[in-house]
Amino acid sequence: MQDTLATLISALLAAGLYATMSYGLALIYGVLKVINLANAGVLMLGAYVTWWMWDAFHVDPLLAPIVVLPLFFLFGIVLERVAVRRVIEQEPIVSLLLLFGVWLILQNIAYAIWTGDTRSIETPFIESTFKLGGIQLAWPRVYVFVAGALTLAVLQLFLTKTQFGRAIRAVSQDREAARLAGIDVERIYAVAFGIGIALSAFAGSLLSLLFPFGPDFGQALQLKSFCIVVLGGLDSFVGVAFGAILLSLAEAFGLRYMAASLQNLISFVLLVVVLIAFPKGIAGIIRSLRRV
C-alpha cells in the first residue's frame, strides 16, 4: 500500500516534468505543423545556461528562468525568421531534416564551449528532502512539478483569454480563416515558435535541478516527449498534461515488474500502441465525447 502510494506520487511528480518538456513541442506542431526535432538540443542548452549562470556567477538556479525564458524566446524567433519559415510550406521531411541539423549544431556548440564533461548543480535546496506520511520526497521534484502545473495554467489562460492567444489558436485551426480575419500569420508563426523554444529551454532549466547532464542530454527525453505529444493529440495542452500523466504512470508501475534499463521501451511501446489504436490521441477522444 505504502509502496503503491509512493509509486503514484513519484509518477505524478515525473508527469509535471514530462508535461513541461512537451508543451513547446505541442505548441510548435499545433501552429506551424512542424515537428521540432531540435527540442532535445534546446532542453540541453536550457540546462547548460542554468548551470553556467550558477557555476560562473553564483546565480541561484531557481532564478535562471528570468534569463532563460526571454533569451530562448528571442533565439526561437531568430531561428524561425532565418530558417524554419523557409521550409514551412514544404514536405515535412524538409523541416525534419533542418531541425535535426539544428540539433546537431547545438550539440556541437555545447561540446565546443563546455566540453563533454558531465555537469550538475548542487545547492542546499536541490539536496533538500522532506517526509510526507512516511514517504521521502525531494523538494526539487516537487518544485519542478509545481512549475509544470503553473506553466499549463498560464498557457491555458494566455491561449483562451487574450486576443493574441486566440489568434495563435486560430492559426493552428485554420490558417486561411486567420488571414481573412486580418491576423498576420507570419508573425504568429514567429511568436509561437519563440514561445515553444522558450518553454523547452525552461523545461531544460528545470531538468538541470534534477539530473546531471552533458551535450547529448535530452535524447531519451525526446522520445518520451514524442510519445506524450502523440498521446495528447499534438495540439492540445490539456491533452499533453494527460499524456504526461499516462506515460509516467505506465513507467512507474511498469518498472515494478521489469528491469530499469527497459524504461525507455515503455514509452516506445505506448507510442506505437496509441498511433495504431487512437491516432488522434487523448484530445481526439475527449473531442468526440464532447460532440455527443
Binding site: 486576443q163 489568434a167 489558436r169 486560430a170 485551426q173 485554420d174 486561411e176 486580418g182
Partner: peptide, 23 residues
Amino acid sequence: PEGRKLWPEMTVEDNLLLGAFAR
C-alpha cells in the same frame, strides 16, 4: 469564405471575438 472555415475547436464567441482582430 466557402465552406464557412470556422475555427472548429473554439467557442462561437471566441470565433466572433477574433473576427474583430483587425485594428
